[in-house]
Design a protein around this nucleic acid. Structure first.
Lengths: 236, 236
DNA sequence: ACCTGAACACCGTTCAAGT
DNA sequence: ACCTGAACACCGTTCAAGT
């Protein structure tokens, strides 16, 4: 052994092919899911990979290109329900279009909440990859099979996406807030019960229900989804 | 007149009381609505006000405090429908709770889309001011008056907020994208019609409806809201 | 070809100083 | 009390240089 060296740079020059797009995207997803979008910086990404900041630029043009690639990768992971070739025997007696729509929506919600990063990336600009288009096509097909006419199907798919994205964002944000601040839930509950009943009669009355509602998130999504689908499709 | 001076700093030292919280918030809203949230920097804000960057810090602790104040101000602008003292005569024969709920939701959607900045600010952290609480109380009261039981009313209000926020974000983003890129609409339409019908049969079939759906935004929101409320309240 | 550090133009904010 | 510029620790990215 050589005598104690300075060894300040805890990282030596990286060997020649340590980096490739896949490894970079792995690290990006890891970083985003672990530390949130505001921690997703080029410098942090390089550190996560154990290379100099600029090494990443040999594989991607810049941060935007990486963000898009991450979005595509995550959308590709989504599991769509097996398609039923012929327009099925109706909503009763098996997984009709109604159930399949719910299944796709749940998959989307799960993707968004499992990978909070996906949300910001997908909403920053509309996804253009095959994966996204396929999901869209699938939803539209199911809505048509459920009996909606052409323009109603299009309108319904927009409403469903808007609700699903809004709901997932709500979930992700409140979850992240809780992580940052342990006693936030307790403080919220206390503040709710101390609201002046004179000024906010309904809120004060519903304080206990409100406090517990913020915990059941996936259930809350599915309840609202059920109502929305019911309203859009007109049956159940 | 003195001979031509250098006069490089186009702004002289600002007189002593040019700044106050109101003027600062005015400028912040102006800046946010005009240039978008990513252009809302302390330096840009100071420039908008014609003062040095640090002048603002004499009136607000930092950027977060300004953001919160802007959110409160915008929420305060919302117009709530006149409350009806006694639980009304039912959904028929006038503005029952059903119609009032719709009215409040429309006000929220309009606030969010008129002031895109409100959206980012309100979702960054949950608003804590009187204005926000009052709106919340109002919605909960109307849902109860519409016949929902305690936990159903709480769940419904969450779904409604999630849908409204998701919808407004969608609207704001697509509008902003169009502003940045004039021919974006045309390119989207073209790409839609050129999709391989073999791989995306439904999308290809619905291309014309899809293209025009992206234009009717407020109408789209109201259609989805109608469906959601119908599903939640079970009448119409 | 792939990885590197220095440098540039940004950002929010701290600080000591002007008036 | 209110406004100021310089400075600090960040950010994405450009560039010339190493291997």
């Amino acid at each position: 052994m050589t005598a104690n060296q300075p060894a300040r740079p805890t990282r030596r020059r990286a060997p020649r092919n340590t980096l490739n797009p896949d490894r970079i995207l792995d690290a990006a997803v890891r970083l985003l899911d672990r530390d949130g979008p505001e921690a997703f910086t080029m410098r942090a990404l390089a550190k996560e990979l154990g290379v100099g900041t600029m090494a990443v630029y040999s594989h991607f043009k810049g941060k935007d290109e990486i963000s898009d690639a991450v979005a595509h990768r995550l959308l590709g992971e989504i599991e769509l329900p097996a398609p039923r070739p012929q327009p099925g025997p109706g909503p009763d007696g098996g997984a009709g279009p109604y159930d399949q729509i719910r299944e796709v929506c749940r998959s989307l919600y799960r993707l968004f909440t499992d990978h909070p990063s996906a949300l910001q990336l997908l909403t920053r600009r509309p996804p253009s990859g095959d994966e996204a288009i396929a999901v869209l096509d699938r939803i539209l097909g199911l809505l048509r099979q459920a009996g909606l006419d052409r323009s109603a199907a299009v309108a319904a798919h927009v409403s469903i996406m808007q609700y699903t994205i809004g709901s997932a964002q709500w979930t992700v944000r409140s979850r992240r807030r809780e992580e940052c601040d342990e006693e936030l839930g307790d403080r919220m509950r206390e503040r709710l019960t101390q609201l002046p009943a004179g000024r906010y009669p309904w809120l004060a009355d519903l304080a206990p229900e409100l406090a517990s509602a913020y915990l059941a998130r996936a259930e809350q999504y599915e309840q609202g989804l059920e109502a929305l689908l019911h309203g859009l499709l007109g049956r159940r």
